[in-house]
Design a protein around this nucleic acid. Structure first.
Lengths: 240, 240
DNA sequence: CGCGGATTTGAATAGTATCAATACAGGTGG
DNA sequence: CCACCTGTATTGATACTATTCAAATCCGCG
């Protein structure tokens, strides 16, 4: 747990929360945190649990505290595309009361810390730094979306799958330095169907490409979900 | 030209500019407009002209006043993906001094109205409404990016090409009502190679799909660039 | 141990890319 | 005015990648 000089003045709820450092709560003073914490509610969600419905009015916002949330869109005939993944301590929800146009769903087990829309809107009005953080988060999501557009539009199935594993590995462990040879190990926060929907492929193709990566000893897989990448730089070379 | 009550107090430059209505300049008071106009420079760019280089420091921002700007990203081996299109009166440039990670290039003939980064940053500090408009623009770009991710990841070549024509038609003429049968006509603001890079296809595939749409009388094409869509709703049905 | 869902593997097919050739439009110079 | 040239777009034949449909295997769990 990170220690601050005045931890005592900070809500218990917030003391060990990453959102207070890298997330939007970093914009808030201890007093504002106390005020916001009065309205927050922590919750745990199982995989598949829908957090925000497509084009649904958003009545509350949330910080992702643990796990991965997938944002997806669907075509009328049922084809689905995952358009974003939110990791802790990302912010979930859309400012300005516009409808979101995406479905947010827990991909893995997810913990959130949610607060009513008007609580955050009141804070935005009195603290411009908060608005700035929200804008930065939007810019980050835009960058990630565009980066992924390159993957969707221009990479082969093999490169897509490699890129996906690379993305997950680097997001779950932000300390990864790709320069030095380094081994990483992690639990995949989603199933093959979600991966396929993220990559614009079928589950079968995803599976085949995973098998190929395993045969080439770029990755090791145990129990379907536990991945080990013995040499990140070798994985990165496969991302195209 | 739109008329305002106090047109006289507004810089000549701005009087007939859409950015003052739907763009970011709408956040500015006449006095602020005057101040900003002191530093602005109108410019015309030919197709292919690079406006912002990838991961280049951005020293100036701009409004797109006419034409279409394409935002693209490239893989090391030269594969390219167009990740966004900016129409008048969209804003071009990135707040917070972060590098942009995308290349902005005039797709058609483009007119811009540009101003130095510190001019806009000064205005942001004194006018929170401007920051809000920029945030909204970012949200709009994020929505468009995600919408396009569905197209890239989940649509067939035929649907992609139909979606592209639909996108261009609706952006060039925002009054289009898809409910009533209506004919639209427009100049494509980009060549086949750009379309292919936007759709994640090859030029040959784009061409074949255009031919098919023409044979099915969903579109008419004259001189390669001039498109007519006799019935928008029929085009929309092909977008998947 | 056996069931059901998730994942992998296999064979056939469809869709898109690639490579090559042709057609077209716009501009140039005789 | 026409022949020519150049860059862009279309069309054709073939190769290859990813999908589809089907079957087998693995895994967690009662």
């Amino acid at each position: 747990m990170r220690q601050d000089i005045h931890n005592s003045s900070i809500p218990k709820l917030c003391v060990s929360c990453e959102a207070r450092h890298r997330g939007i709560c970093g914009a808030l003073s201890p007093e504002e945190l106390v005020e916001l914490a009065r309205h927050t509610k922590k919750a745990r969600h199982s995989p598949g649990r829908e957090l925000i419905g497509e084009s649904e009015d958003i009545t509350s916002f949330a910080n992702v505290m643990k796990g991965v949330v997938k944002l997806s869109k669907m075509l009328e005939d049922g084809r689905q595309q995952v358009v974003g993944l939110q990791f802790a301590p990302d912010f979930l929800g859309r400012p300005f009361g516009e409808s979101s146009q995406v479905t947010a769903e827990a991909a893995s087990e997810v913990d959130t810390c949610s607060f009513p829309r008007n609580a955050i809107e009141t804070l935005i009005k009195q603290n411009p730094e908060l608005e700035l953080r929200l804008h930065r988060q939007t810019l980050k999501e835009l960058d990630e979306a565009r980066e992924w557009m390159v993957t969707l539009g221009r990479k082969t199935a093999a490169e897509k799958v490699a890129s996906f594993i690379y993305l997950i590995a680097t997001h779950l462990d932000p300390t990864i330095d790709t320069e030095e040879v380094r081994s990483v190990s992690f639990e995949l926060p989603m199933n093959r169907a979600d991966i396929a929907d993220f990559l614009g492929l079928t589950i079968e193709t995803v599976s085949r490409q995973l098998t190929k990566l395993r045969q080439d000893q770029v990755i090791e897989i145990e129990h379907n979900r536990h991945f080990t990448v013995p040499d990140i730089s070798r994985l990165k070379k496969r991302c195209g």
